[in-house]
Amino acid sequence: MREEPHVGAVQPTAVGAASDRAIAAEDIAIDVRDVRRRFDEKDALKGVSLLLRRGTVHALLGPNGAGKTTLLRILAGLVDPDAGTVVIDGDPSMERTSRRYRSTIRMTPSGDRSFYLRISGIENLVFFARMYGLRPKQAKVRAAECFEAVGLEHAGDLRVGRYSHGMQKRLSVARALLVPAPILLIDEATHDLDPQGAARIRGLIREAVDDGAAVLWATQRLDEIRGFADHVTLLNRGEIRFEGTVRAFMAVSPPRRYLVHLRDAAKAEDLRARGILARSEEALDDLGRIVPTAEADEGHMLMALEEDVVLSRALGALMATEIEVLACVEERSEIEEAFLNLTDPEP
């Protein structure tokens, strides 16, 4: 047993609640400690530590160039770290290039280039299934199962060279699932997928997690981690800015801007004559500001609240002036807010 480390040296206040919990050593699939990597003049990773637990999805967030892919490639044994350690299954003697290490990990790369373009998707899967040690018949059966599972059954004998980006992503996930592995490293798997396709892929990954796999899920689709990931690590410029549960991550920065749909419920003519915008501004007063989202539709507004104002107080103020709130949604999700708060703005 050891205490779960938190590494957020930049913003220690962003440590999630899970960091305080001790976790059993046998529950740890990957223990990454103080990994550093430099490419030419750029520090891609500046001392990243991370624990990946069995049977969980660990989301790896971060803007472009944060170091997500570099970290995954180091974990997959494709790039050597300059410093730091990566321990799999609690066995520090396992070399990252050893056969046993590579049997333990499957990676879905972020790019399209990882298949033989002149042969069909299913033949690609058969080939890689053989590389993972399946016998010819097993490989064919398993390839067909995974091909169908990711929704590519319609692609049949189509060469991979004719696949769309999304289809290649699906194929890449299918490859990762060919032979169950204890650790899955998934890089932007749903990037080019439609919502249904993305949900399907997440469902397959969740099934693998339910079977005990540990998943490190790098993504820029922030909202997909809600209800899917168990833990979050946010990287920014090679450093960890947050590590903890999704709930803790969402709590980092409560949303301050809401899209509201209002309706005038006033019966008095003089109130109605003033219109809902003027009355809303007056009702909110120093609680926040409100502006229409479109000139033609006075009922839809963007409401921005002041720092210490809770949402219910603002809505109460609107309703007190006989304005009904038909709908109220966050303009940006808590996850997106937290992400923007914890990462540096683009130059």
Binding site: L78, R102, R106, G133
Partner: peptide, 15 residues
């Protein structure tokens, strides 16, 4: 290398 399959091969448990 061009197809990117070299990495996929080397990441598999193949000598």
């Amino acid at each position: 290398q061009l197809y990117g399959t070299l990495e996929a091969l080397l990441a598999s448990p193949t000598a």
